[in-house]
């Protein structure tokens, strides 16, 4: 049901520029106003959110440790440096592995049934499908986004050209099909399929989980459509996009409607981004269970709101309360007065 809502909603979103551009001739509105506004929302929302997270305190160092810590004898007990980092540098590597290789997902296990000679055994076996789908999706998305830089830069930097060459290595079709386009679609479909088919994931999914996937799928499909089928006027589009970055706005007449649909969907994605779970992208960098070294026994960490007024129940009070039986039991007292029974005092 949630998936259906999302699909329907994205479908409606496609209709807006279709009618807006074709019927209402709002070319400037859809070509410039919407994307610029969306980009501003994205930028401000994104930065605001990250600053807002950053303004919250980190009272304690709470890394989740995933291996042996730095021992008193690191030769005898080898430290697992990148799952249980002790220093800033090790923590940096842990973060790099987490961000670029999805290390925690790589650990994933799934319970599965195994027949052995003594009957059935449930074992928690490594399960890397989610990792694979996630890597496929995120890297394709990243490269596709990077490729779009060619529309905003003049001259086009060499690394972009190199990347495009590798991406189009298979030389299928004209214009050459990019591998990442295929991978991106495959990644989205696999993640979406998993969400629909795995009953556990299905049960926990909201419309807000399907929507970004469907939206990204629509973005990708519209992009592929305009590149390979509609064969839009790329020169004119570059004209427009360069205008956007040089604040010299104009919308060439030769751009087809498929471009506007693509741009509109991207705009929605950008505007939606800061208010959604897509913020996991910057969020991972601020996750206290991953980005802190496991060194609080060796180094002092400051809690900005540590309350010095919270003190231990004082020993002096303890001795006052239990002094008499303590003295009888022969336990040493700091203040011998406390050991006298009340009747003696009287």
């Amino acid at each position: 049901m949630n998936a259906l809502y999302s699909l329907l909603f994205v479908f409606l979103l496609v209709l807006i520029p279709l009618f807006g551009v074709d019927a209402a001739h709002l070319r400037t509105f859809f070509g410039i106003c919407i994307p610029v506004t969306a980009f501003i929302i994205f930028l401000i929302g994104f930065i605001y959110k990250v600053i807002n997270w950053g303004r919250s305190d980190v009272p304690f160092r709470i890394p989740t440790t995933g291996g042996q810590f730095l021992s008193y004898d690191p030769k005898m007990f080898k430290q697992n440096k990148y799952d249980c980092p002790q220093t800033g540098a090790q923590t940096f590597v842990r973060m790099v592995l987490e961000v670029f290789a999805f290390r925690s997902l790589f650990r994933n296990t799934a319970a599965s049934l195994h027949e052995t000679k003594d009957g059935h055994v449930v074992a928690y076996k490594s399960s890397k499908w989610l990792w694979l789908f996630a890597i496929l999706f995120h890297y394709s998305f990243f490269i596709v986004a990077l490729r779009h830089l060619r529309l905003f830069l003049e001259p086009i930097p060499f690394f972009l050209k190199g990347m495009e060459f590798v991406d189009g290595l298979l030389q299928i079709g004209t214009p050459t099909m990019y591998l990442t386009d295929v991978c991106l679609i495959a990644g989205v479909v696999l993640l979406l399929g998993r969400r629909l088919i795995d009953p556990k994931i299905n049960y926990i999914s909201y419309a807000s989980d399907y929507f970004p996937l469907v939206l990204i799928l629509a973005v990708a499909l519209s992009g592929i459509y305009m590149r390979y089928y509609a064969k839009v006027d790329v020169i004119a589009i570059k004209d427009l996009t360069m205008g956007l970055v040089t604040f010299n706005y104009h919308v060439p007449e030769t751009i087809g409607v498929s471009f506007f649909i693509h741009v509109f969907l991207v705009s929605i994605l950008m505007a939606y981004f800061p208010f959604s779970k897509l913020m996991h992208m910057p969020g991972i960098f601020l996750s206290p269970t991953r980005n802190l070294p496991n060194d609080t026994r060796a180094k002092h960490h400051v809690n900005p709101w540590n309350d010095p007024n919270i003190k231990a129940h004082a020993y002096a009070d303890y001795e006052k309360e239990f002094g008499v039986p303590m003295a009888e039991a022969g336990l040493p007292l700091d203040n011998p007065e406390n050991g006298k029974a009340p009747e003696e005092e009287a």
């Binding site: 319970a111 599965s112 449930v122 009953p199 556990k200």
Partner: peptide
């Protein structure tokens, strides 16, 4: 029952 899975893998847990 739902989260334990479909026909194929519903017994894949202790």
């Amino acid at each position: 029952q739902k989260i334990w899975g479909r026909q194929k893998d519903r017994f894949d847990n202790p």
